[in-house]
Simulated scan of single mutants.
Amino acid sequence: MKLYYSPGACSLSPHIVLCEASLAHELVKVDLKTKKTEFGDDFAAISPKSYVPTLVLDDGEVLTEGPAIVQYLADLAPASRLAPAAGSFARVRLQEWLNFIASELHKGFGQLFRKPPAEWQEIVRGGLAGRLAYVAETLDRQPYLLGANFSVADAYLFTILNWAKWVKFDLAPWPVLDAYLGRVAARPGVQKALKTEGLL
Score class of each variant (00 low, 15 high):
M1W: 05
L3A: 01
Y5R: 10
S6L: 04
P7R: 07
G8E: 00
S11P: 05
L12S: 12
L12T: 13
S13V: 11
S13N: 11
H15Q: 06
S22D: 15
L23K: 02
A24I: 04
H25F: 13
E26P: 04
L27I: 10
K33P: 02
K35G: 03
K36I: 02
K36N: 04
K36W: 02
K36R: 15
F39T: 15
F39M: 14
F39C: 11
G40M: 03
D42S: 15
I46R: 03
P48D: 09
K49D: 06
S50K: 15
S50P: 07
T54S: 13
L55T: 01
D58R: 11
D59P: 00
G60H: 06
L63K: 05
E65F: 02
E65M: 06
P67F: 04
I69N: 02
I69G: 00
V70F: 00
Q71H: 07
L73R: 05
L73D: 07
A74I: 01
L76K: 14
P78Q: 02
R81C: 15
L82D: 05
L82V: 05
L82F: 12
P84H: 04
P84L: 13
P84S: 09
A85T: 14
A85N: 13
A86V: 15
V92W: 09
R93S: 15
Q95S: 14
L98Y: 03
N99T: 15
F100D: 11
E104D: 10
L105K: 05
H106R: 04
F109A: 10
F109E: 07
L112R: 10
R114Y: 13
K115A: 15
P117I: 12
P117R: 07
E119L: 14
E119Y: 04
W120V: 15
R125W: 11
G127I: 04
L128Y: 00
A129Y: 07
A133N: 14
A133Y: 02
Y134S: 14
E137S: 15
E137P: 02
E137M: 07
P143Q: 12
L145R: 05
G147E: 08
G147T: 09
F150C: 08
A153V: 11
A155L: 09
Y156C: 07
W166I: 08
K168E: 14
F169R: 08
D170L: 08
W174S: 00
P175H: 10
V176C: 08
D178C: 11
Y180E: 03
L181H: 06
L181I: 12
G182H: 06
V184A: 03
A186I: 03
P188I: 05
P188V: 06
G189A: 03
V190S: 00
V190I: 12
K192T: 13
L194G: 00
L194A: 04
L194H: 01
T196E: 13
E197M: 07
E197Y: 02
E197I: 08
G198F: 00
L199C: 00
